[in-house]
Design a protein around this nucleic acid. Structure first.
Lengths: 229, 229
DNA sequence: CTCTTTTGGTAGCTATGGCTACCGATTATT
DNA sequence: AATAATCGGTAGCCATAGCTACCAAAAGAG
């Protein structure tokens, strides 16, 4: 239990909460921990919500898949990553996406009611926890907004430029390492991998970028900017 | 002021709050009301956040536009509609989208700090208001999730089927009226209007649907279901 | 009721990008 | 170090859907 508390205190959901408070909370919050092997579903889209999930160790992908089996990656969860926060506070909650282990993982589930509704003891940290939740969900919503921006771009070129320029901003360097494999990037931008490779090759030919495997260098930032759709 | 209180009490943000409490709140919350003529920007994407907005009267569209001027409609706001909730609780907040009046409108702005941080009087409704906020933002996030679902579909046919079937579910009737004009629907699905018309004509030809202007009837639900991408 | 504006349908051309298939390179496994 | 599995690049074909342009119908304004 101490191990879990030490871990949780570093996650955004439990920020601004004192060490002692947190230890008290854990008994009150009614948590459950489960283990999953690599390449297994933790939860499947559509199933009834079993609580907010926190990845304690391993790696998992939040994915959305349609009938035909075509899938898009929403996010990659690292330890500390949260999932299921969005529907947690709504009635009749169901998982809006599936979560699939990339590595063998352990997951902590925590029932949403406990976060929000004060327990009998009227612990003071409920307000803090609710506010943290509010921030986290707001951030998620903005992330989705960003995703919508990418998906709304009609041209492949536009998507790639937007993505590269964002990486450039993050790394503050024209040379950077892509955080996704080709397959994943194609999924993320919702395009087919070969088409993406083709377009990247074209951009290299035109002297806009250079790349070798996961390492990319932007050669003409200005021109790339004008190409965002 | 009484007029505003009577109006607000019916909105989701102020649900579960008593009439008397609400009247007290309004003084405490530091609200501002502004008027906007038809076809004007209320806020523009990228500008610093000026507070959470609530549409009191009129109609406005939340839109996202890229450099090239191509725009997509995120939602249509009716009186009572909220905007700016997503970034409101995050530091360095900026408007993630623009809001544009479709009819002349009046808008109430309300500073987010006031919702969350208890005032000196430690009013009991702060907790309720925060919880309402949590629900609203969760819903928004799920809506965006839905939007991502639509945009992730690669075929026009798939998008149309998904949209029609959702309308069918909402109206519980195979015949229904489209809530959007062709232009708007095309924007929403992120496709071009002529291409959409063409596809709808094809679907009519194939006996899947029938339509005249904004009235649509689904003729083969099962087959439509199999076509969602 | 007429005139204007908005909205919706259609046609034809063309670019974009999806898909399959294949091969070489890189990385993981033992 | 050898083998297997994953990953990335390329080619060619072709369906999908974007775009412009134009016309007809409906809705609004005077």
């Amino acid at each position: 239990m101490h191990f879990i508390a030490d871990f949780l205190i570093k996650t955004p959901l439990f920020s601004n909460i004192g060490q002692t408070d947190l230890t008290n909370m854990l008994g009150c919050l009614d948590i459950k921990v489960k283990e999953y092997p690599k390449s297994h579903y933790i939860v499947s889209a559509g199933e009834p919500l079993s609580g907010i999930g926190i990845l304690l160790s391993g790696e998992a992908a939040v994915i959305k898949e349609n009938a035909a089996g075509s899938r898009i990656i929403m996010t990659i969860l690292q330890p500390g990553g949260l999932f299921g926060e969005m529907p947690a506070f709504l009635p009749e909650a169901h998982w809006p996406a599936s979560v699939y282990t990339q590595k063998s993982s352990s997951v902590l589930f925590l029932p949403p009611e406990k976060i929000v509704s004060g327990c009998q003891k009227l612990c003071p940290w409920h307000q803090t926890l609710t506010l943290n939740m509010l921030k986290i969900i707001s951030e998620k919503a903005l992330q989705l907004n960003k995703k919508v921006e990418y998906l709304s771009m009609k041209s492949m070129r536009g998507k790639l430029c937007a993505f590269f320029l964002e990486q450039y901003q993050k790394n503050a360097n024209t040379t950077f390492t892509l955080p996704l494999k080709r397959n994943e990037l194609a999924d993320f931008l919702n395009v087919s991998r070969p088409s993406m490779s083709r377009e990247m090759a074209r951009m290299k030919e035109e002297g806009l970028i250079d790349f070798y495997l996961s390492s990319v260098r932007l050669l003409n930032i200005e021109k790339l900017r004008t190409m965002i759709d």
